[in-house]
Amino acid sequence: MSVFIDQMGRPVEFTTTPRRIVSLVPSITELLHSLQLDDQVTGITKFCIHPNNWFREKTRVGGTKAIKAGVIEELQPDLIIANKEENVQEQVEELAQHYPVWVTDVNTLADALQMIEQIGAITNTLPAATQLTSKIKTAFSQLNNNNRPIKTGYLIWRNPYMTIGNDTFIHDMLGRCGFKNIFAHTKRYPAIDTWQLAQCDVLLLSSEPYPFQQKHLDELQAELPNTRILLVDGEMFSWYGSRLLHAPAYFTSLLQSIL
Rank of each mutant, 00 (worst) to 15 (best):
I258K: 03
A191P: 04
E30L: 12
D6R: 08
Y154W: 15
V12R: 05
G63K: 06
V232T: 04
D201G: 14
G70R: 12
L24E: 03
C48H: 10
D39R: 15
A249G: 03
G178A: 03
V71Y: 04
L31N: 03
T133F: 15
H216Q: 09
V3F: 08
Q213Y: 13
L259E: 10
L217K: 13
L132G: 09
N124V: 08
D218C: 02
I80F: 09
P209Q: 04
S34I: 05
G9P: 01
I150P: 06
H216C: 05
A110T: 11
V92G: 11
S253P: 12
N146P: 10
S141V: 15
Y250R: 00
I150F: 11
T133V: 09
S207G: 07
L255Q: 02
S141R: 15
Q213N: 13
P51Q: 08
H185Y: 11
T125P: 03
K65H: 07
T64A: 10
P225K: 01
L79Q: 04
F179W: 01
R10M: 06
A222P: 00
M173N: 05
G165L: 01
Q196V: 08
T42I: 14
R56I: 06
L255S: 02
T227D: 02
R148G: 14
T130A: 10
T163W: 01
L259K: 09
M236N: 05
V41H: 00
I192Y: 15
Q36N: 13
R10S: 10
Q142P: 13
D6P: 10
A247G: 05
D172R: 05
Q7P: 07
I122P: 09
I229A: 01
V92Y: 08
L197E: 02
P18N: 02
S257R: 05
T133S: 14
E74W: 05
A110D: 15
T186E: 14
T108H: 04
L95R: 07
G153R: 11
L113P: 12
I116Q: 06
V92K: 07
N87R: 04
A129M: 12
Q256N: 06
D201L: 08
S242A: 06
S242T: 04
V92I: 15
Q114R: 11
K65R: 14
F140V: 15
K137E: 15
G9N: 04
G165W: 09
F47Y: 15
Y161K: 03
E90P: 11
L231Y: 00
F179K: 00
L220W: 00
